[in-house]
Design a protein around this nucleic acid. Structure first.
Length: 129
DNA sequence: ATCGTGACTGGGA
DNA sequence: ATCCCAGCCACGA
């Protein structure tokens, strides 16, 4: 049972799709600590579909005013790719800075200091070495 | 129903 | 090193 690419529509039950996935996304996002950020990819992985990072973004698209700290979700480089969805492009960065998040000269979040990894992800990456 | 797009990512050319 | 592409899921035209 090699993990292969785990692609192709197998093993993912219907119930494990939209409802669960979106639900999990919200749940995880709600857990991102103050002053920290998480990546789309890590969130997708915790939600059970590693390669569905884009869908994570889509899920957050409907949150806007749900009180979720979706400004703490960035891409793998720490870029604020979702900033255009906050009404104004600077809001996301403002929110993060107000939490003490530091940025590099390139305008990316300093992931060394502020990247938060869910326990699940940490475990898996540890296993991989 | 198919097709294209997207707040992504990893691997291959 | 850069560039391209496939793959994931949801949605609107």
């Amino acid at each position: 049972m090699s993990k292969k690419s785990n692609t192709g529509k197998h093993r993912i039950k219907k119930e494990n799709r939209k409802k669960d996935f979106f639900d999990r996304v919200y749940k995880i996002v709600a857990k991102i600590p103050y002053g920290k950020v998480a990546t789309y990819g890590d969130i997708a992985e915790v939600c059970g579909i590693r390669s569905a990072a884009r869908t994570v973004g889509w899920a957050l698209n409907g949150t806007k005013e749900n009180g979720l700290p979706c400004h703490r979700v960035v891409n793998r480089f720490g870029a604020l790719t979702g900033r255009m969805h906050f009404g104004d492009p600077y809001i996301m960065e403002d929110l993060l800075r107000s939490e003490g998040v530091e940025f590099t000269k390139d305008g990316f979040v300093n992931l060394e200091k502020h990247l938060w990894k869910p326990a699940k992800v940490k475990r898996r990456q540890k296993k991989l070495g």
